[in-house]
């Protein structure tokens, strides 16, 4: 039970990172982006490529950091991967979503995002193979937090959780302390007025994709580090990430962060009563519950 709680928080941090980007896109560009979770896969594989590259170029970088299964090379690769994934998100918008958006067809964007998801997911499968990979073959030792009841935590999980929280704090500071953050929030509230106030909407749209892509890349790497890397990361995380955005209320960044943890916890706690085969259905149950009782999200404020 407590192990489920611990696991729930750890995986919840990953959902939260994905959901923050998705909720921003859903609110600002007004469409449910079914290809958002594929950005997690893009991030995971981009980091894999650069980890190998950095390790080959500078072998000392391949050394593990402390008790983590993560190497210095991977730490650097995460940053590169965030940039690459952000660029991918901007590129996909430019090639597909922007053109449909300019014709003013919101639901066609939802539809196109299914197509984009299929293409991205399967191209990754074709390039990297359909099998699973790991950043490191070494199996890291788990730390025993308690013997009775048995609670195990791997150092990678602790690192992932702290790194995810750090990213969220940075985002919070940007939103609440910088004029760039004010412009983002201004566009979220009233795009027309923001434009009158001199905010360049196109730049904000790009910023939204960059933030969404960067956070998704980090989430993808963290997922790969604590589970495994497969081209199906996007498919498997799509519903949990959607559930987190709906729990948090579409457009609420803080809601999405909280929603991620909540969905992580709920999905893991559900395994106490449900056989594990049913876990892919749990996010959908959460969505149904939220839509039945609080369609605007559990953390919805007074905002209309």
């Amino acid at each position: 039970m407590i192990q489920h709680l611990v696991d729930g928080v750890l995986v919840g941090a990953i959902y939260a990172l994905g959901a923050i980007g998705l909720t921003m896109v859903m609110h600002m560009l007004r469409f449910a982006n079914f290809s958002h979770a594929e950005l997690l896969s893009v991030g995971a594989y981009a980091a894999l490529v650069f980890e190998k590259l950095f390790s080959a170029l500078a072998p000392p970088l391949a050394a593990k950091i402390g008790p983590l299964s993560m190497s210095l090379a991977l730490a650097l690769a995460v940053l590169v991967s965030m940039a690459i994934t952000a660029a991918t998100a901007v590129l996909i918008d430019k090639l597909v979503f922007k053109r449909i958006r300019e014709r003013g067809e919101e639901l066609s964007m939802v539809f196109a995002s299914f197509g984009v998801a299929l293409i991205v997911r399967n191209v990754i499968g074709l390039v990297f193979g359909l099998g699973t990979t790991l950043y490191s073959r070494e199996i890291p030792f788990a730390m025993v937090l308690s013997l009775d009841p048995l609670i195990l935590v791997r150092p990678d999980q602790i690192f992932t959780l702290s790194a995810a929280l750090l990213l969220m704090v940075i985002l919070h500071l940007v939103l609440s302390r910088t004029t760039f953050g004010y412009s983002l929030r201004a566009v979220a509230e009233n795009p027309a007025l923001a434009q009158i106030a001199g905010v360049n909407l196109r730049r904000i749209v790009i910023a939204v994709w960059v933030i969404g892509g960067g956070l998704a890349a980090a989430a993808g790497v963290f997922y790969g580090l604590t589970n495994q890397i497969t081209p199906m990361i996007g498919r498997d995380l799509l519903m949990p990430v959607f559930a987190a955005t709906i729990v948090g209320g579409i457009g609420s960044i803080y809601g999405a962060a909280a929603g991620g943890f909540l969905v992580g916890l709920a999905a893991n706690l559900a395994l106490v009563i449900l056989p594990s085969g049913y876990s892919p259905s749990v996010p959908f149950l959460i969505i149904l519950l939220v839509l039945s009782f609080r369609p605007s999200g559990i953390f919805a404020s007074e905002r209309a």
Binding site: I100, F114, G115
Partner: peptide, 16 residues
């Protein structure tokens, strides 16, 4: 995978 990419491309291409 190739067939899925084709389906995805048909959807995106038609919409565009």
């Amino acid at each position: 995978s190739i067939q899925y990419v084709l389906i995805g491309s048909v959807i995106v291409g038609m919409l565009l």
